[in-house]
Each structure stands twice: as C-alpha cells, then as structure tokens.
Simulated assay, not measured.
Amino acid sequence: MKTAQFLLAAMLALPAMDTAQAAEIELWRLDCGSIKISDLSAFSDTLRYQGEQRTLTDSCYLIRHDASYMLWDTGLPAALLGASQEGNGMKPSLSKTIKDQLSEIGVAPDKIETVGISHNHFDHVGQATDFPQARLLIGKADLDGFRAEPPAFAVDPSLVKPWLDGKAPVNTVEGDKDVFGDGSVVMLSTPGHTHGSYSLLVRLAGKGAVLLSGDTVHFEEQFTNNGVPPFNVDRAQSLASMGRLQDMAKALDATLVVQHDANDIAKLPAFPASAK
C-alpha cells in the first residue's frame, strides 16, 4: 500500500500532459464554524502548549470541477448556530451554515454531487445530511468507526445517518483516491489522527496545487515541532502523514492549508471570492 501511495505521489508531481483538455477547477473556502480552546495543551501529548488559549477555525471547502460540485468536509452541526463560547474546555460555535453560503454564490444544495470527508469527527461531518443526494467519500476505517459500539471520541453516527442506513450513496476509500479521474482532485491517505484520515490535493490552473490538511495537524507550528494530540489514534502514523504532506508541498510547490489554523486558511481568498 505504501509503495502504491509513493508511486501515485510521484505521478502527481509530473506536469499535466494535456492542459488544453483540463477541467476547469475552482475552489471556495467556506466558514464552517470555530472552536475556542481554553487549554491548548490538550493538542500536544508532550503538554507543549500549557497555559495557551486559541480559537481554531473550522473551515470546509467547495470545489467546482467543470459543472460538478464537491464539498470537502461539512463543518460543525447546524445545531451549534450561535452557541456560546464562554467557559473552559472546547467550545464550538457556528455563525452560518454551508447552505446559506452556497446560496450567496447561486449553488443550490442539490447541485452538490460529492461530499468528501477528511475524517469522522463531528466537526467535519456536521452538516453532511443537508446533502443526502451526494455520494459520500470517506476512509473505510472511518466509516467503520461510525458503526463501532460505543463510537470513538468525537464520533456521532447520527450526522451521517442517510449513508449508514443505505439511503444515500457511499464509497469507502483505501489508499489514495483520484476523485474525478484526471488528477485534479485527489484524496491523500494521511492516517494517524483517525485510522482513516485523509487530506486533499486540488490542482488549480492559476494558483497551482493546494493541499488541504484535514486534521493531519491543527495549527501550522505542529509541523515544525512534531506536535501530536493525545487523542490521535497513532503517533507514528501521525508523524509520517505530517512528513508526507510537507514533502508533497515541496515537490509540487503547493500551498499547504491547515484547515483549523486561521492564519493558514487566509492563504486562500475569503468567501465569496474563490481561487482558480
């Protein structure tokens, strides 16, 4: 499996062979909530961040591939609209829904054909059921995690009920997944945070390659200090996945975006502007 992933990474690093026929790709950064953290040491198994506080972004993304639309992650549940972030612990809150943001750019919810999920935690699948017609793409191990008894930390099976009940289409992913078959959008296997975690490569004609981190890290400095949260399922896999994204970013001269880091997501235009 690792050999196949490395071969695919090498192939992805090659220039496009037929740019005249390439699909038109457009990428929007959506606001899918925020999480106020009163003790950031919960995000390092070496207690590196003791005494620090931070508000993490909960970003998700809309991708247009010619006339097809895909969501990458679906943020916090709509039940958290206007939730208070006062007090200690982890306090999630949502200020606007994905559907409301899509309406601003004239994309009807039923136009979403694919929902790609980085991993199965509630802050990444929260609004998935607003798009029950969509094909769900998710790591096989993380779909299996929705069926586990009891569910693991931060996993809420009700948030993906249509797909668990067989009422909506789902494709499980193992290894890397070329979503549209042309190398423009590729799910990259980056396990460690969960057993079936993924990141996403998006190739844009103007901006170039963009790598969306999923939860491979939660903020940029974790790449340089090898910061691994204690709630990750595998430390060694976490570090290997961090290295894979960094190496690929160098190979492709890509913009690497940490989805929970406010400074990092600012590498992409603020909604409703898009990157092309």
Rank of each mutant, 00 (worst) to 15 (best):
V179G: 02
V179M: 05
G181I: 13
D182C: 09
G183N: 12
V186R: 03
V186L: 04
M187G: 04
M187T: 01
M187S: 08
L188K: 01
L188T: 01
S189G: 01
T190G: 02
T190A: 06
P191Y: 11
P191Q: 08
G192C: 04
G192I: 10
G192H: 12
G192W: 13
G192A: 02
H193E: 06
H195A: 14
H195C: 04
H195L: 13
H195K: 15
H195T: 12
G196V: 00
S197Y: 08
S199K: 02
S199V: 02
S199T: 08
L200A: 13
L201T: 04
L201Y: 04
V202Q: 05
V202I: 14
V202T: 09
V202E: 11
R203E: 09
L204T: 03
A205M: 08
A205I: 02
A205S: 09
G206W: 11
G206D: 13
G206K: 15
G206Y: 07
G208I: 13
G208W: 15
A209C: 10
A209M: 07
V210E: 03
V210N: 00
V210S: 06
V210C: 09
L212Y: 10
L212D: 07
G214F: 07
G214S: 06
G214Y: 11
D215S: 10
D215Q: 12
D215E: 14
D215I: 00
D215M: 13
T216F: 03
T216Q: 05
V217L: 08
V217A: 06
H218A: 02
F219W: 12
E220M: 11
E220I: 04
E220N: 01
E221P: 10
E221Q: 14
E221L: 11
Q222A: 00
Q222K: 02
F223M: 01
F223D: 06
N225H: 11
N226I: 01
N226E: 12
V228Q: 01
V228K: 10
V228L: 04
P229C: 03
F231N: 07
F231V: 00
F231Y: 14
F231R: 07
N232A: 14
N232Y: 15
V233W: 12
V233M: 05
D234Y: 12
R235N: 02
R235S: 00
R235E: 06
A236I: 14
Q237D: 14
Q237Y: 02
S238Q: 09
L239Y: 04
A240V: 10
A240S: 12
S241P: 07
S241F: 08
M242R: 09
G243Q: 13
G243C: 03
L245V: 03
L245N: 04
Q246S: 11
Q246A: 12
Q246V: 13
Q246M: 15
Q246P: 03
D247I: 13
D247A: 14
A249W: 08
K250R: 13
K250S: 02
A251D: 13
